[in-house]
Amino acid sequence: MQIRTNALVSSVKNFLIEVGGIIDFTVLVFKQFFKKPREHKEMIKQAYYAGNKTFPLIAITGFIMGLVLTLQSRPVLVEFGAESLLPGMISVSIIREIGPVITALLCAGKIGSGYGAEIGSMRVTEQIDAMEVSGINPVSYIVASRIMATTIMVPILVLLADAIAIYGSYVAVNMYSDVNFQLFYNQAYNTLSFKDLIPATFKTIIFGFMIGLIGSYKGYYSKRGTEAVGAAANSAVVTSSLAIFVIDLVVVQVTELF
């Protein structure tokens, strides 16, 4: 019992240390955003890797997401004679929740783990230490540029995933009936409002920031040794995914207030 209690206390303590560490790191990164030198080129390079290299994965997933969601929802709506509500229902589901969350999870898996492993290996191979010695600010060059890149690119990827998912839904609807593309998009957008689009887009900015932040944090503060690189990558994915759901919950509650 005593051992269990100690383990629990230790876990809680570690969790709180982790939270405190992330907050410290966030403050450090935020300061860096407004400080010179700004690493624009590195940021564009990271944005390219985070965006363009992830896009095919996002595109395929988004298309399948829209297609499958439509195929699964259609029979229930057909039973109620409400097939015409399908585009509206799918568009609301995708824009509000499924698009942002699934895309953010994919980005956490691909980009977050990549950052964790990349920066972790820099730490292990003492490249970060070498930068500090040679007068280059590693937080600015490695971390801030990456976080800025994900903060910009994740919302863009989510928007593209939404568009592709709605197109996937259109394809699925046309498997069973002949629906005009314009009619489909009219029905989809008639159901949507700014209340659906704006909070969801705002949410993805936070997702992007958190994916970059957690991935970089895990890599930046990884332990010495090759095992630590894998652990950092793994931990980055797990923590980012958890953070995405927590942020989603908080943002939904906050936007419901308005």
């Binding site: 564009i44 363009n52 690119m153 863009i156 593209l160 949507l192 689009l197």
Partner: peptide, 25 residues
């Protein structure tokens, strides 16, 4: 080349956002 591809991607994403905002507006 990387910058061009990145530009295309960002433009496409922003275009979808702008079109969506326009349609909803």
């Amino acid at each position: 080349n990387h910058q061009l591809k990145l530009g295309i991607l960002i433009t496409a994403g922003l275009l979808f956002f702008v079109v969506s905002v326009y349609l909803l507006g």
